[in-house]
Design a protein around this nucleic acid. Structure first.
Length: 652
RNA sequence: GGCGAUGUAGCUCAGCAGGUUAGAGCAUACGGCUCAUAUCCGUAGUGUCCGGGGUUCAAGUCCCUGCAUCGCCA
């Protein structure tokens, strides 16, 4: 059996965040799982590097597009190993091989007659650099730039997507698993119930040069989606080769819901047109919110995977995202949530049970795995063993369905049972009387064997923790390399195996509960009932508490560009790095010229709700001090830091 | 405006195709153990299953309607 699993190729206009990490962890874990099932697996991720936004971003940084994308692509590539993500192939749409294949595909589709040249006229907004639909306009103007769009006619190439609409509808209906979870399948079908328009697949070179030239007309480059989707094929050496034959028929794509349409509609019709079978499954997941709100650059609450790994460790991060999110639905990320998962599931349950079991084998049998005495086997023992069989089934079914949270819940059911088993069998009691030795040995064996199986099933999700468990259990290479089917079989641990001392798999994290700090003198009030309801300190007028202060996120930002806002004599539009790029409009035009601002470091409120000022949306606020001089003149001075520091540094 | 999803214990959610006292984890309270990472085990709960109608012997589970939130489309 073979498995081909892909993530989207990530658009290099931003650095990796939790959402990217999630898609990639999912694909990696699924790939590892399939490998553990004995499949030959190919796992691909990469970066998407063409298009208008990239060209703009590069220009904004005074870099050539290629220099710019090289940097961000490397950041993605470098992030994955820190999350124990091991793709077999990392593809870039600027790879020469990819470019050639895209051109071959275009030519093929063109020759088939599915691409035509046509004039398109529409309302083009220079600010957005794209055509707007009538419906998007507000009072006839672009809602973002408040300017009237130009009616322009442009000639472009179009892909006859509409030719394949009926075929696609049928295909989706006949293959219930083609798009999962179902809610997204419904969404696509509902979208397809309306006539499909053809897809514009070119951009004139006059407007954009950063793209793949059309093979049949050099005055145009390829629209990014047409270019990007093909990565899934080029990564396999399409149009020929063993990889393509082995893996394409089993292709499974993991995506987030924002790119559903290109993957569920553009891509299958493109494949159909070029004469390639559609992919097997498309797995669509939801968004990670951060503490109830959307994660976005402008709010400044973007979660960086590297920071998470530093704070919690790779295994915890992988476990958390897979356990916490029901695949397909949105979830919310919060430090309390991940700390709670780490402490309760990983440290208290799995980590602790691992530690206590190994310790007992050391204390009561010198660290060697003792033999089972069939004569003293109880119903309860058999129940535990049976439960492991049930877990195995649920686990596999859930992993196959991308229901990772359910797979993990099933594993933790066994962790819970093992803890109960320890308590009801109390080896420390058995050890007191030599007459109980056969039973003690049997119990200890069950502990060791259950741990071995737990180490095996968590391997795809937490490869590190799994390896540490196997290490302590001193499993042979043979036992470590078993497939699931062969490995989740009772009784494989050999009697006499000498175990190592237990490692602390997941050290507990201290909760940052500042709320519980009580300042009341110990016996100020009479004993009796505990006063559970700690009085909240009375609010004092004009005084905020520390928690309120923490809500304000201050950051150092570097000004990279500044220009006056038209028709506003007080406003200057600033482009800042903090560390990501953002726009902030500041009412400082009377005091500073745009020229003198560029290069300055300022302090901004980074998590202020975005607000529109004279047509520009401001994502934050620049801090400044203001005074009125004795002669009645106003003076304003920007707040800054006393020495150079990395853009985006927090101020507190 | 059209289509769709969701609304269940303080929190996060399970409840598959209608059937006895509605479940799990976390959090809370009390009790127990000592092998263990101040961990674990047991007990205790509380729920107008969003509101209102209806179908049925029987509805959290089906139908209609209203409200709220979200998504897609226009």
């Amino acid at each position: 059996m073979t498995t081909y699993i892909t993530t989207p190729i990530y658009y290099v206009n931003a650095l990796p965040h939790l959402g990217h990490a999630y898609s990639t962890i999912v694909a990696d874990s699924y790939g590892r799982y399939k490998k553990l099932c004995g499949d030959q697996v190919r796992f691909q991720t990469g970066t998407d590097e063409h298009g208008e936004k990239i060209a703009q971003a590069a220009e904004g940084k005074n870099l050539s597009p290629k220099e710019y994308v090289d940097g961000i692509s490397a950041a993605f590539r470098g992030t994955w190993p820190t999350l124990a993500i091991e793709p077999d192939n990392f593809i870039r749409t600027t790879d020469p091989g990819h470019i050639k294949t895209v051109q071959d595909v275009l030519q093929k589709v063109y020759d088939k007659g599915d691409i035509y040249f046509s004039e398109y006229s529409g309302l083009y907004c220079k600010g957005c650099e794209r055509f707007l639909t009538e419906k998007e306009l507000v009072d006839g103007k672009c809602p973002d730039h408040l300017t009237a769009p130009d009616e322009i006619a442009e000639q472009n190439y179009f892909f006859r997507m509409s030719n394949y609409q009926d075929w696609l509808i049928n295909h989706i209906k006949e293959n219930p698993e083609f798009i999962t979870p179902q809610r997204y399948r419904n969404e696509v079908l509902s979208f397809l119930s309306e006539p499909l328009e053809d897809l514009c697949i070119s951009r004139p070179v006059s407007r954009l040069t950063w793209g793949i030239p059309l093979p049949f007309d050099e005055k145009f480059v390829t629209y990014v989606w047409f270019d990007a989707l093909i990565n899934y094929l080029t990564g396999l050496g399409y149009p020929e080769g063993q990889d393509f034959e082995n893996f394409w028929p089993v292709a499974e794509h993991v995506i987030a819901k924002d790119i559903l349409k290109p993957h569920a509609i553009f891509w299958p019709t493109m494949l159909k047109s070029m004469g390639v079978e559609p992919y097997k499954r498309l797995h669509v997941h939801g968004y990670w919110n951060v503490d109830e709100t959307k994660m976005s650059k402008s709010i400044g609450n973007v979660v960086r995977p590297a920071e998470l790994v530093d704070a919690y460790g790779v295994d915890t991060v992988r476990y958390f995202v897979l356990r916490e999110m029901s695949f397909g639905l949105d979830s919310s990320f919060g430090t309390e949530a991940i700390t709670a998962r780490h402490n309760s599931d990983l440290a208290n349950d799995l980590g602790n049970v691992f530690s206590r079991c190994l310790t007992m084998i050391h204390k009561y049998n010198g660290g060697g795995v003792p033999a089972v005495d069939e004569a003293v086997l109880t119903d309860e023992d058999r129940e535990l063993i049976d439960a492991i069989g049930v877990m195995h089934e649920t686990y596999c079914r859930s992993m196959d369905e991308f229901a990772f949270h359910r797979a993990l819940a099933a594993v933790w059911e066994i962790v819970g049972r093992l803890n109960k088993f320890v308590v009801t069998n109390a080896p420390w009691e058995l050890a007191k009387d030599p007459a109980n030795t056969p039973r003690l040995h049997t119990v200890l064996y069950i502990l060791a064997e259950t741990l071995r199986i737990l180490a095996l099933v968590i391997k795809p999700i937490m490869p590190g923790a799994s390896a540490r468990m196997e290490e302590c259990l001193t499993l042979s290479d043979e036992l470590r390399s078993l497939t699931l089917d062969k490995g989740v079989v009772w009784g494989l641990t050999s009697v006499g195996t000498a175990l190592s001392k237990p490692a602390q798999l997941f050290p507990r994290l201290e909760k940052k509960k500042k709320k519980k700090q009580v300042q009341q003198p110990a016996n100020a009030e009479g004993s009796g009932k505990k006063k559970k309801q700690e009085k909240k300190s009375e609010p004092v007028e004009g005084v905020i508490d520390f928690a309120d202060f923490l809500k304000v996120e201050l950051r150092v930002a570097k000004i990279t560009a500044a220009e006056k806002v038209k028709k506003a004599d007080k406003l200057i539009k600033l482009t800042l790095l903090a560390p990501e790029e953002r726009t902030v409009v500041a009412g400082i035009a009377k005091f500073y010229t745009p020229e003198e601002l560029v290069g300055k470091q300022v302090i901004i409120v980074a998590n202020l709700q975005p607000r529109k000022l004279m047509g520009e949306t401001s994502h934050g606020m620049v801090l400044a001090a203001k005074e009125t001089t004795p002669d009645g003149e106003e003076r304003l001075v920007l707040s800054t830091v006393s020495d150079a520091i990395a853009p985006g540094s927090k101020v507190s």
